[in-house]
Design a protein around this nucleic acid. Structure first.
Length: 498
RNA sequence: GGCGCGGUACCCAAGCGGCUAAGGGAGAGGUCUGCAAAACCUUUAUUCGUCGGUUCGAGUCCGACCCGCGCCUCCA
C-alpha cells in the first residue's frame, strides 16, 4: 500500500487513484523566462521519482507538466529584448527539455503552454462570471475569495492572517478585496493582448493550471505537485477557481517538495545565488551524480546543496557502480543462486517498502547498500556464481527503473555521447586483452587498448616507471586503470570541462 | 503578528513508545597490491538542541525554552 503526505490534510494517507490502475498527475512546470536552476530541478527530480515509482508499482500514469510562457516576467523579458513572447521563451523551453533529458527525467505526456490554451481559460472564467465567483473591474476580471468559503484550506491560512501584500498588482488594478486575485488582466501598453469573449487582455497567473489540468486530466484528478512555495497563493487559487467552476473536488493528493538551499541560504533567481545544471556539469560532475544528490534527501525535507554534499553523493553512487562492475566481471563462483536469492528478495521488498512510505528514499537506499555490504565479501572471495551475479544485476536494473542513476551515456559540452562511468572490462596481465564481454556497451578504441596492453607488458617486465607513466597519461584522458589479481580493469571517468 | 518546518556522530541522513540508535561520506588501523585504485576486516553516538513532565520504558508523547529556516500575493 502506497502512502503519501497530502498537504490538504497535513497527514500521510493511503493513496488510491480515482480510476483503479490509472494515476493522473499534474506537476507545475517552469515559467520560461530564464534558465532553470538546480532548485527547480530538485522539484522535477522528486516528481520523476514519484512518477517512476508509481509506474514501477504497476500504475499507468498520465502526466501533464505546464509551461508558463506568458506572465509578468516573460512579458517584461520579451519587452526588454524587443522580441515577441514566442521568440523570447523558445530558448528557455529548449534548455529546459535538454536538461530534463540530461537528468534522466521521464518526459510528460503533455507539455501544454499557457499561450496555447487561452480559450480554455476563457471558458472557465466565463463560468466563474456566470456563477458569481468572479467580477469585472476596469476591464480586468477577479476571483472573489469571499464567495469561496473553503479558501485557505490547503495553505491553512485564514483570510485575517494574511498580511496585505505590498507587492504585485495591488496598486495597478482595483479589486474589491486585497486578497482577490486576477483571472484576466485588462490590456496594458506594451503587453500582449488576446481578443476574447470576455474582452481583450491576457490571463492572470493561476488560471492556466486550472484550465490545462482539467483539459488533459479531467475535473478531478489524482496528484498535483509543486514546490512548497506554490502552496500559497498559486495552488490555493487553483483550487478556488477550479472547484468554484466545476463544483467538484479538484485534486485528491497535493504533494509538495521542500526547497533546495545553497550553503544554508534559500536559492532563488532573485538572489542570484543559483546554479544551473550546466554550471555543475562544467565542474566535471556526471548528471547522474546530480540526480543522485537531488534524489537522496526526502522530498519534504530541505536539501542543502553544497559541493561537499555532491562529492558525497558521487562517492556513494560510485560504490554502487563499482559493485555492479564487479558483478559484471564474475566468471564463476561457488555461491549459487539459491544462496543469493533470499538476499535479493529481501532487498527488493525493503526498497519497495521504503518508497511506499511517502517515498522514504533513505530507507530504500539503505537497503541497497546493505545488499552490497552483504554480497561484497562473497564477491571478493570469488564465491558468487555467474547466474547469481546476473540475478543481482537484474535486480539493480529493475530498481533503476525508479532511481535512474545507473551509468549511461551522458552529454558532453559539445552535446555528443562522451563517456561512461563505472563500466569495466578485464584483460590478462602482460598479454593481450582477452575478454571483451559482448554485452559491454562501451568498448575502448583500439589505440587506448594498445596502450593498456603496453602498460601490462611493462608491468610484466617490471618497468614500473613506464607502467605508471602510461597509467597517469590515460587517467588524464579519462581512463582510470585498476589492477586486479589477474587482469586490469578500466573505467571511463568524467573529467572537468575546461 | 499569523501559519509551518527542522535541530540524531566530523559531514549527510533514517528511525517517531520497547531487541546492542539504519545507511552513505570522511577519518584511523589492518588485509590484498610493485605502487596506486577497488574490495574486504576492524574502528568512529551509554546517546538523539536544552530543561522539566507523562510512562514499567522516550530521539520517539506533553510543556517550556534556545537555535536555524520557510510561507503570508515574483518563486520549484
Amino acid at each position: 500500500m502506497i502512502r503519501f503526505h497530502n498537504t490538504l490534510s497535513g497527514k500521510v494517507e493511503a493513496f488510491e487513484p480515482v480510476a483503479p490502475g490509472l494515476v493522473k498527475l499534474y506537476t507545475c512546470g517552469p515559467t520560461v523566462y530564464d534558465f532553470p536552476h538546480i532548485g527547480n530541478w530538485r522539484a522535477y527530480v522528486f516528481e520523476d521519482l514519484l512518477k517512476r515509482f508509481l509506474i514501477f508499482s504497476g500504475y499507468k500514469v498520465t502526466h501533464v507538466m505546464n509551461l508558463t510562457d506568458v506572465d509578468d516576467k516573460t512579458i517584461r523579458g520579451a519587452k526588454a529584448k524587443g522580441v515577441g513572447l514566442e521568440e523570447y521563451t523558445r530558448p528557455f523551453i529548449e534548455a529546459f527539455k535538454k536538461d530534463l533529458e540530461t537528468l534522466n527525467i521521464l518526459p510528460a505526456d503533455h507539455y501544454p503552454r499557457a499561450t496555447g490554451h487561452i480559450q480554455e481559460m476563457v471558458d472557465i472564467i466565463k463560468v466563474l462570471l456566470e456563477k458569481g465567483f468572479a467580477y469585472k473591474k476596469d476591464g480586468s476580471i477577479y476571483f472573489a475569495i469571499a464567495k469561496f468559503p473553503a479558501y485557505g484550506r490547503l495553505s491553512k491560512f485564514n483570510l485575517e492572517d494574511l498580511r496585505p501584500g505590498s507587492r504585485g498588482d495591488a496598486d495597478e488594478y482595483e479589486k474589491e478585496s486585497v486578497h482577490d486575485f486576477a483571472l484576466w488582466k485588462a490590456p496594458k501598453e506594451g503587453e500582449p493582448v488576446w481578443e476574447t469573449e470576455i474582452g481583450p487582455g491576457r490571463p492572470g497567473w493561476h488560471i492556466e493550471c486550472s484550465a490545462m489540468s482539467s483539459k488533459y486530466l479531467g475535473r478531478t484528478f489524482d496528484i498535483h505537485c509543486g514546490g512548497v512555495d506554490n502552496i500559497f497563493p498559486h495552488h490555493e487559487n487553483e483550487i478556488a477557481q477550479s472547484e468554484a467552476a466545476s463544483g467538484v473536488k479538484f485534486v485528491n493528493f497535493w504533494l509538495h517538495c521542500h526547497h533546495l538551499v545553497v550553503d544554508g541560504e534559500k536559492m532563488a533567481k532573485s538572489k542570484g545565488n543559483f546554479y544551473t545544471l550546466e554550471d555543475i556539469l562544467s565542474k566535471g560532475y556526471d548528471p547522474r551524480e546530480v540526480r543522485f544528490l537531488l534524489l537522496s534527501t526526502h522530498y519534504r525535507k530541505m536539501l542543502n546543496f553544497t559541493f561537499e554534499a555532491l562529492e558525497q553523493a558521487k562517492a556513494a553512487r560510485q560504490r554502487i557502480g563499482n559493485f555492479l562492475g564487479e558483478l559484471k566481471d564474475v566468471t564463476n563462483g561457488t555461491a549459487e543462486t539459491a544462496e543469493v536469492l533470499p538476499l535479493i528478495e529481501t532487498a527488493r521488498e525493503g526498497f519497495v517498502t521504503g518508497l511506499e512510505d511517502d517515498l522514504n528514499i533513505s530507507e530504500s537506499m539503505a537497503v541497497i547498500f546493505s545488499l552490497i555490504k552483504s554480497l561484497n565479501p562473497l564477491l571478493s572471495r570469488g564465491e558468487v556464481s555467474k547466474s547469481a551475479a546476473q540475478k543481482v544485476l537484474d535486480l539493480f536494473s529493475s530498481l533503476d527503473e525508479v532511481l535512474a542513476i545507473k551509468p549511461s551515456p551522458i552529454r558532453s559540452a559539445s552535446g555528443k555521447i562522451a563517456a561512461l562511468t563505472g563500466v569495466s572490462a578485464t584483460g590478462a596481465v602482460g598479454t593481450v586483452v582477452k575478454k571483451q564481454p559482448s554485452d559491454m556497451p562501451n568498448r575502448l578504441d583500439s589505440e587506448i587498448q594498445e596502450r593498456i596492453e603496453a602498460r601490462q607488458k611493462a608491468r610484466a617486465d617490471k618497468d614500473f616507471a613506464l607502467a605508471d607513466a602510461i597509467r597517469k597519461e590515460l587517467l588524464a584522458e579519462g581512463i582510470l586503470l585498476e589492477d586486479t589479481k589477474d587482469s586490469v580493469r578500466w573505467k571511463k571517468i568524467v573529467l572537468p570541462r575546461t
